[in-house]
């Protein structure tokens, strides 16, 4: 293995990516050992792609001791859904699709209307319903602390009450690599094995492990329009407002979420190497550049997490 060398730190010092990898594998095995019914949230995005590789490293040649689950808003990029299904088939693991459309059809939530309508907020209900239906007591997510400042304060094992809510003022102290995953019936933990990774770490790991990602992460020609300084793909799910003119340009996505709240960035980075170069040189955070859902208030993420969001 080439990764146990670091010229500045003496012999047998792991590279930072291998330390982060080892920490994440340790976390996944702890969850598998201590909780009854875990699930891994897989969206087809880059962070959850890394989670799947880590799960392979943690549990192969055995099977994953949990199923995968995607909360599908119905407004996802088709390229991502196609990738999701292919990747799951390759792994031979089980995928549960929790559908926001079904939650709407059952009358559990009402669809937002107007040109700024998004299904992002509605996902929370679908997620909580699915956790309850399948009696999941732990859910792995790909969230990272560098993404957002409320997340910077969140534990790796994030305890949730029986409403799925996060109480930021009453978090369990997390020391050494000793995690307390004890829950009562109805309660659960969200577990974030990538907590200490940055966006750059994720891309470097994808490059080092040669992981496939959906092609929308690389530069491609797409019809977009400009709103609030961000570029959105034109689609059936987006209503144009007055003065918004679609145009074709070269873009890529830094994050992959609901089409209605995920913006593209102008880019010509067509392969992993140039994408890693772009991320290393960027002056804007990934959520700031591409996610409308965080722009609502100073504490938008904290508020959504208190309500049970990822």
């Amino acid at each position: 293995m080439s990764t146990i060398e670091d010229p500045t730190a003496g012999p047998l010092q792991l590279s930072h990516l291998r330390v982060l990898e080892a920490e994440a594998i340790h976390i996944m095995r702890e969850v598998a050992a201590e909780l009854e019914r875990p699930v891994l949230l897989f969206s087809g995005g880059k962070d959850s792609i890394v989670l799947l590789r880590l799960a392979e490293k943690a549990f192969r040649p055995g099977r994953f001791p949990f199923p995968l689950m995607h909360v599908d808003t119905g407004h996802n990029f088709p390229e991502v859904i196609e990738f999701r299904d292919r990747r799951v088939a390759e792994l031979g693991e089980r995928l549960i699709v929790a559908s926001v459309q079904e939650t709407i059809d059952k009358g559990r939530v009402a669809e937002e209307t107007g040109p700024r309508a998004s299904r992002n907020r509605l996902q929370t209900t679908t997620l909580l319903d699915a956790i309850e239906e399948h009696c999941f007591d732990a859910a792995f997510g790909g969230a990272r602390r560098d993404e957002e400042r409320a997340r910077a304060k969140e534990r790796i094992f994030s305890f949730r009450d029986d409403f799925g809510g996060w109480d930021p003022k009453n978090q369990r102290p997390e020391l050494w690599s000793l995690y307390n995953g004890r829950v009562r019936r109805g309660e659960s933990v969200r577990v974030f094995p990538l907590s200490n990774w940055t966006e750059l770490d994720v891309w470097q790991y994808i490059a080092e492990e040669d992981l496939e990602v959906p092609n929308i992460y690389f530069a491609h020609e797409r019809e977009v329009f400009k709103r609030d300084g961000m570029l959105y793909a034109t689609s059936d799910h987006m209503e144009l407002m007055d003065g918004e003119e679609p145009f074709v340009t070269s873009v890529r996505y830094r994050t992959v979420g609901d089409m209605s709240c995920t913006g593209a960035v102008a880019s010509t980075a067509a392969d992993l190497e140039t994408v890693v170069g772009e991320i290393a040189a960027t002056r804007i955070t990934e959520r700031g550049e591409t996610r409308a859902d965080d722009r609502v208030t100073e504490a938008a993420m904290e508020d959504r997490k208190v309500a049970g969001y990822f």
Partner: peptide, 29 residues
């Protein structure tokens, strides 16, 4: 305000909880 990520911390102007920050140079993360 950059490190105090919780609403209560910003309101009270104090650090209560541990915040994790990440930076990197050519040699180390």
């Amino acid at each position: 305000l950059l490190t105090d990520g919780l609403r209560a911390e910003r309101e009270q102007g104090i650090t209560i909880d541990v915040a994790y920050r990440y930076f990197q140079t050519a040699r180390r993360k």
